[in-house]
Design a protein around this nucleic acid. Structure first.
Length: 270
DNA sequence: AGAACCACCTGGCAGC
DNA sequence: TGCTGCCAGGTGGTTC
């Protein structure tokens, strides 16, 4: 489900209800996520205050005095705030009871997500090699151009490589390439500096607009209070195969790249 | 080093 | 209705 806008929407929704709260207890109903939820997570968390919630790519980091709770939503994960003692449903795997009226609940049908303890984000295996944050300074066409030198991989797969840019997944890669007028199959190493500038700008504006719409809800993404995002109604190409391009009316096409669906406009993207 | 594939898991939907 | 096959927002690991 969640790419950067959905993860960031989740973070912003949680902030006012979670930061400053102490953790009263932890319930792990199913520890078999992408990696096992560590034994002793409850012992590490219980009694501790949550000082901040940060995001690195699609990872959320809950800052505690002695370390960090790391949450990744995988393909189908969700974090919601529910009234304490709300009965768990089938895929509610982890509960973090907070002081105050609510419980922070991790739900994930496919269990590709993760709930882990991290001592030091700077050296953690899952975090240390992540690429540029597309909404922060340092992300630019020039930086992308430099990283793409000599690489034959399709630009769409390049954009989705978390070691290059973090947070851009399957939906927003297609959308950003449409915005920049670049064909998703073009080799990353054969794109001009001017077009990398357009693409970097398109990635930023695409993610920013999605964020302002509360993210995209395709199947099950909901914000922390249970309301869906609505950016899916504004997708230019994603999920629109056969429908007319919003700009030139050419039917949108789909193709497979690295076992993922890509959508593009053959009229607008070269 | 880089590129292409696979694996992990459940649920929803189209087609028969 | 019920079965089968395919698809889905991610990403680490393996192989070439």
């Amino acid at each position: 489900m969640p790419e950067l806008p959905e993860v960031e929407t989740t973070r912003r929704g949680l902030l006012p209800h979670v930061v400053g709260r102490h953790i009263l207890g932890v319930v792990v109903r199913n520890a078999s996520l992408r990696w096992p939820v560590p034994r002793g997570l409850g012992r590490r968390l219980t009694g501790e205050p949550i000082r901040d919630i940060r995001r690195r790519g699609k990872y959320l980091l809950f800052d505690l005095p002695k370390g960090h709770l790391l949450v990744h939503l995988g393909m189908s994960g969700r974090l919601t705030l529910v009234p304490r003692d709300t009965p768990p449903r089938k895929h509610d795997h982890v509960d973090i009871d907070l002081d105050g009226p609510r419980t922070l609940r991790f739900t994930d049908p496919r269990r590709f997500g993760a709930v882990l303890w991290v001592d030091d984000p700077a050296t953690h295996m899952l975090l240390k090699d992540l690429g540029m944050e597309p909404l922060e300074a340092g992300f630019s066409g020039a930086a992308l151009h430099r990283k793409a030198r000599g690489r034959s991989v399709a630009v769409k797969n390049f954009l989705m490589n978390g070691g290059i840019v973090t947070g851009v997944g399957n939906i927003y890669a297609s959308e950003a390439l449409f915005g920049a007028g670049i064909h998703p199959g073009r080799s990353a190493g054969r794109i001009s500096a001017a077009r990398w500038d357009r693409l970097a700008q398109s990635v930023r504006t695409t993610l920013q607009s999605a964020l302002e719409s509360g993210g995209s809800t395709l199947r099950d993404f909901v914000t922390v209070d249970g309301t869906p995002g609505h950016f899916q109604h504004r997708h230019a190409v994603y999920g629109r195969e056969g429908k007319p391009c919003r700009v030139c009316k050419t039917p949108i096409r789909a193709l497979r790249q690295g076992q993922r669906s890509t959508f593009y406009c053959p009229g607008c993207q070269k």
